[in-house]
Each structure stands twice: as structure tokens, then as C-alpha cells.
């Protein structure tokens, strides 16, 4: 069958899609967007998380045909998505209006703000605040869980700009990571939140 939908703001079409294919498969194998990852294909790891009409979902559990006419944002489009949101609201995580809460202090979060000298590959790429924070905090090791975590974390910060640690853990509880022990992922999300509230 033919399936067409919008991915990262661009209209996309795929032909000869087998009816049992997932949105994840179509993104990865037909549209050249392998950023969303295929770790479990049973909704138990979150590596394939994309936004479907704004809502974070496991793209492995969305039948390709169900995506017809919908809007998808994948990790490949996250930086653009955040930039447009920022232009729209003046806030890159989309939730800068709320103030207060009991998030981590900027000082604490910036313990990890050490900048590297040689991001030799992909240097100069424009990143969303969450993406930058994941790099800065050392939240990326093998990186296979990273795309899904970025989508989930970005969406959480959009809703909740000053999350407590328990809020972060709950929001990311559908994203497995096997390398980091999650501590640096916590640091990264705290850092993104702190930078955001500082930017206001």
C-alpha cells in the first residue's frame, strides 16, 4: 500500500508498504531516517520514540498505515522542531512561562558544562537544548537509547520546565538505557532545565 505523512515538516510518501510494517520500519528503511532505533520492537525500551501529532509514542507499535496523514517528529528533526518552537514562544523547550518549582540549581547542573575541544564530526550542527545537554553531561555512551530519550525528555520539558528528580524519572521510565546507569541522563535533563530557566 501507499502511505504518506509529514516527517519533520516535510511531506513523505512510501510505496509498496507491506501492511504489517511499523512506522519505525518505514522511517528507517524507506525514508532514510534511521535515527529512531529498533532495540526491542515491542514497546519495552522507548528507543524508537517519535512524536505522532505531538504525542510521544513508540513508533514500532504504530502500524505504518495508521500514520497516514499524520505529523511525525523524529530525532533528525528535533533541533529544527525546538528552534521553531523557540521562535514561536521565545523558549526552546516550549515551557518558559512557568517560573519557580524545585529544579536543580544552575550551579549544580553546570558542573558538567565543560566544553570539548574537538567535536570533530558534526561540529557546527545546530542542536536543541536537550541534545546539547546530553553531550555536555556525558549522557551518551553507545548512544542507541539516545534518540528516544531525547524525544521523551524534550517533550517532558515542554510540559514541565522545572521537573523534580522523581518527575524526570517517571517521564523517562519508558526509555531503557543499558550503558550509563541513567545518572548522567539525569544530569543532562537537569542541565537542560537549568539552562532553560536561566535563559528566561
Amino acid at each position: 500500500m501507499r502511505v504518506s505523512f509529514t516527517v519533520n515538516g516535510r511531506r513523505q510518501e512510501a510505496d509498496d508498504v507491506w501492511e504489517g510494517e511499523s512506522l519505525l520500519y518505514v522511517l528507517r528503511e524507506r525514508l532514510g531516517l534511521p535515527g529512531s532505533k529498533n532495540a526491542c520492537e515491542q514497546g519495552e525500551c522507548g528507543s524508537c520514540t517519535v512524536r505522532l501529532d505531538g504525542v510521544p509514542v513508540c513508533s514500532c507499535l504504530v502500524a505504518a498505515g495508521q500514520a497516514e496523514g499524520r505529523e511525525i517528529v523524529t530525532v533528525e528533526g528535533l533541533a529544527d522542531f525546538a528552534r521553531q518552537r523557540s521562535e514561536h514562544t521565545g523558549c526552546a523547550t516550549g515551557a518558559c512561562n512557568s517560573v519557580g518549582g524545585d529544579g536543580i540549581s544552575l550551579d549544580e547542573a553546570q558542573r558538567w558544562a565543560a566544553k570539548g575541544q574537538d567535536s570533530q564530526t558534526g561540529e557546527g550542527a545546530e542542536l536543541s537544548p536537550v541534545q546539547q545537554a546530553f553531550i555536555d553531561a556525558g549522557a551518551v555512551q553507545c548512544g542507541f537509547c539516545t534518540p528516544g530519550l531525547l524525544i521523551a525528555a524534550d517533550e517532558m520539558l515542554e510540559r514541565n520546565p522545572n521537573p523534580t528528580d522523581a518527575d524526570i524519572r517517571e517521564a523517562l521510565s519508558g526509555n531503557l538505557c543499558r550503558c550509563t546507569g541513567y545518572e548522567k541522563i539525569m544530569d543532562a535533563v537537569r542541565l537542560a532545565a537549568a539552562r532553560q530557566s536561566e535563559a528566561v
Binding site: 532514510g32 535515527g35 533541533a79 565543560a114 574537538d118 567535536s119 558534526g122 542542536l127
Partner: peptide, 24 residues
Amino acid sequence: GESTLRPDGTLKVTGEFAYSSDMW
């Protein structure tokens, strides 16, 4: 001795890093 950042970090956060299952 310094905490320099991963050279593959940017590729990994943008989805451009090519894992073995991404080959085509």
C-alpha cells in the same frame, strides 16, 4: 585527564550516527 566530550556525540544526538542496523 580532562573531561573532553565524545567526538561522536553530535552524530549520536542527531540520529546521524550509523549503527550496524542502520546500514542500507
